[in-house]
């Protein structure tokens, strides 16, 4: 099972991830990623793995990880 982990020590609220995997992450009112599933690190369904991977690669602060 793959989860999308936000490293809050790195995240700066750029918001690229919420644009790339809107199914898993929304943006809160300050621009920081907000898990849509309510889980701390949302579970990534197989169908979204590619998008999640793009989000991981696109994060300018390297604050996302698939774990």
């Amino acid at each position: 099972m793959t989860r999308l982990h936000v490293d809050w020590t790195r995240c700066d609220g750029h918001g690229a991830c919420a644009e790339l995997v809107p199914e898993l992450l929304a943006s809160d009112e300050w621009g920081f990623p907000l898990s849509r599933t309510g889980e701390r690190d949302p579970e990534v369904p197989v169908s979204l793995e590619e998008h999640a991977d793009h989000a991981v690669r696109s994060c300018p602060l390297m604050a996302l990880r698939l774990v």
Partner: peptide, 8 residues
């Protein structure tokens, strides 16, 4: 002052 949600 490290994590956005906490700061804001």
């Amino acid at each position: 002052a490290q994590c956005g949600p906490c700061i804001n």
